[in-house]
Design a binder for these strands. Sequence first.
DNA 1: ATAAAAATATGCTGTAAAACATAATTTTAA
DNA 2: TTAAAATTATGTTTTACAGCATATTTTTAT
Lengths: 233, 233
Amino acid sequence: MVRKEMDKEEILEKISDLCNPLTPEQRERLTENLTVYTYRKNEAIYSEGEFPTQLMCLLSGKVKIFKNGVSGRNQIIRVIKPVEYFAYRAYFAHQEYLTAAAAFETSTIALIPITTITKLISQNNDLAWFFIKQLSIDLGIADERTVNLTQKHIRGRLAESILFLKESYGLEEDGCTLSIYLSREDLASLSNMTTSNAIRTLTNFAAEKIIAIDGRKIKIISEDKLEKISKIG
Amino acid sequence: MVRKEMDKEEILEKISDLCNPLTPEQRERLTENLTVYTYRKNEAIYSEGEFPTQLMCLLSGKVKIFKNGVSGRNQIIRVIKPVEYFAYRAYFAHQEYLTAAAAFETSTIALIPITTITKLISQNNDLAWFFIKQLSIDLGIADERTVNLTQKHIRGRLAESILFLKESYGLEEDGCTLSIYLSREDLASLSNMTTSNAIRTLTNFAAEKIIAIDGRKIKIISEDKLEKISKIG
DNA sequence: ATAAAAATATGCTGTAAAACATAATTTTAA
DNA sequence: TTAAAATTATGTTTTACAGCATATTTTTAT
């Protein structure tokens, strides 16, 4: 993790969700306490069991939130895209981190002391609503995910993950290649299966002309079929 | 569902988490808009896809929050005990209900128009914090649950569910009988397994003298063993 | 440039848990 | 009070997926 100097105006622009509700003085307080770091690919951002001290905002790059499951098998819980906020749940629940975060690729993150945020929330009702809404959305996603991961079959889970990655990070200019290049292992962690089965099922999808694979590039050929496979489980 | 008249003081006492932060006028507004209903065993409280209009507080009884999974298999997402609040997440996320709720047993519930709550949150920062904290805790539980349900084996999942029920609803006066009597089907929905396997595994636990079963009564004989089984998966 | 390590690919085997079947028991309703 | 329905119990079969082994390719480090 490397400290990064960045133009203040540019940052304020990015974290507008947080800034817009604030008064000029509050905004000043925020920028004074804000630091920006860059994390390299696969670098840990925070770990399970640590005590949360900073709210984070992903300015650029891609980040995974994951848990260390039974016998070292990781489970990706959610993914973060610019400009989303994370790393605050544990503090608001008065807990240690129950998850870990790492960078999928080089990522620039704004860190704001959580105590600063706490004060701002207490002074600013719009900010409180911002977090209530975000937490509510995330809880809904978590509930959906629980059922999908537990009840769908391998093919359904992988199809769902591919669609999920498309929704989360979008496509390249060609309009069909996922703009995130995940290792097979990460794809497995996201889909609750072994790496072997992620590889195998990916190969099958390619043979069935549902997707095309070129190394870590995944090109969606038939979104309809992916949706159908995802739906029937 | 039957409308129930109840002493106002008694209700205010129960929903103190909501009321304590309020001014006398706000408290007045709350009680004016509050209704109390009683739901019978297995009666639906709300359903997936409906539009949320009321925040609910369970005054007495036991409630399950669940999702209709693939091929009609239900999944219990969380359980509610007195005096907990529920049915608000969807509205805060600007969504329809993603889950359904039903009464495990006869339950009395206070209903408050969600618009009333919204106004009170906007006026009262402590109330905003109450929901931020609650949502944060629930999101943490959901994250834990995802990993437990997907990665643990049947025995681990059932052991965990039994311990979870003990934590949630406590024990009878004898100090070892779960005070909730679930059908095997509900126990299966809670543990992500088929009803047959819930029955079978329960029988095994009884044969191993980890629990004792008498109809729907479950007596915990060795909590240590349950914890060990839950932990190793 | 070369060795070492990591990631990907694919086949084979074993097994946990679902699916199915049937019976016994309990609950509910007429 | 008896029939019907629902729940619980248990045995058998099937299968989806994990686990393991091995080879190949790609990436990383020296």
